[in-house]
Design a protein around this nucleic acid. Sequence first.
RNA 1: GUGAGUGUAGCUCAACUGGUUAGAGCACUGGACUGUGGCUCCAGGGGUUGAGGGUUCAAAUCCCUUCACUCACCCCA
Length: 436
Amino acid sequence: MKVAAIKGFSDILPGEVESWQFVEEKAREVFALYNFSEIRIPVLEKTELFSRSLGETTDIVEKEMYTFVDRDAMGTMLPPGPGTIRGSSLTLRPEGTAGVVRAYVESEMYKIEAVRKLFYLGPMFRREKPQKGRLRQFYQIGAEVLGRGDPFADAELLLLLRDLFEMVGLDGLTLELNSLGCVACRPRYREDLLSFLGERGKKLCGNCQRRMGRNPMRVLDCKEEVCSQLTGGAPSILGFLCESCEDHFGTVKQLLGETGLEFKLNPRMVRGLDYYCRTAFEWTSPRLGSQNAVAAGGRYDGLVEELGGPPTPGVGFAMGMERLVLLLAMKESKKAARPAIYLVWVGATARVWAFSAAHRLRRAGFSVEIEGEAKSLKSQMRRADKMGAQFVLIVGDEELSSGKGILRNMDSKEQFPVSLDRIEKEIAARLETNTD
RNA sequence: GUGAGUGUAGCUCAACUGGUUAGAGCACUGGACUGUGGCUCCAGGGGUUGAGGGUUCAAAUCCCUUCACUCACCCCA
């Protein structure tokens, strides 16, 4: 019986994986330039970590998490539901920030160094319906700056992302920017917005009716025609920012102007997770279909404290790997693995000799490919060509008895005799002159 | 979770209104060229037409069910 991968879980096969490695390599380079350290955290966490940090009523927490009860009390396990779970409830991480902050608090990093700049990369899990640029296991590269509340940190992260996009050769992205206010100013805005929606509220789409109760700002983000018309004249959050939020946001914009990073102000952009405040941003591409966000993030000044740490501001972003690779694939092709030497043998004795010679050559630092099954010389040559080998070493009975193998340069078609007892050295010499 | 579309060889696709043995290109294997790659020519292997059921003398084609994939809604990276 054939076993297939789970829906929304996909393999990254050779041919595609090279783009991933390329992006990861570039990401490590920028993070080094901006002095970020890597952190690796578990893929599985206690469920409450996510429900507390992302917000109980978030879509992710409400219906998209892979959550299960651990085996620690399997024997007495009752059907899931409030109060009936005996084992601990665990969840496959749907995003990275919560776990990073948990690790930050748990290991008391704030005691060692006031400021922490961390990055991570790895899989996240969300049980959504798969679509272009949306999988159930998907990969993110993310970064968090903990312990810095100043707007320079926000701007630095935005610049880091811009640099990364440039380094991987991506253009045509748009940066949208907004400020969500803070605990001081958002409630006032919320009130005002609700009173604006007041009588209009009943005409909104069903979705927005529900949103009004939980997170009224989401109504402004609705794509439904009725809603966008009704909310056309709605008050903007930007008019309600308190002095310090205003200052903060002003400096972010100023710094972006200073460094030539263009952005579009979008007072209607709302981030999906509850922990965001102040700066919120989203990089989008029109070429991705409806999942158009390549990277997004913002400030989350209350989260560390919420998770039991000292009051500590934070900013971060997450970037969707498959979306980025999708955009890259439209631009560039990738290089596959190719051996430096393809070992061609004829006859049973040569076969064994070639097998151990391949091993010696590999230990000498050459990438070597060799056939195991009995194939004609012609077909071995064909394979060598297909793989793009630079050199072919041919060994048969004649060569074994004379002690001289044939080394063929596949590009120039030149052939040289090489003594078989010191092939490593002879090949090394040939390769050197070849690369000149 | 809701809706729409698509499933035929490893890949890309054919097969008139149901009608002989489901084809082609590319790829693969071998040969022409007995131990030397790319080009050309020739030959060959490869399919439960996604799966299951039904209608019919006859189903890749029509109907039902199911699965997978894709796109959109939703949501988000």
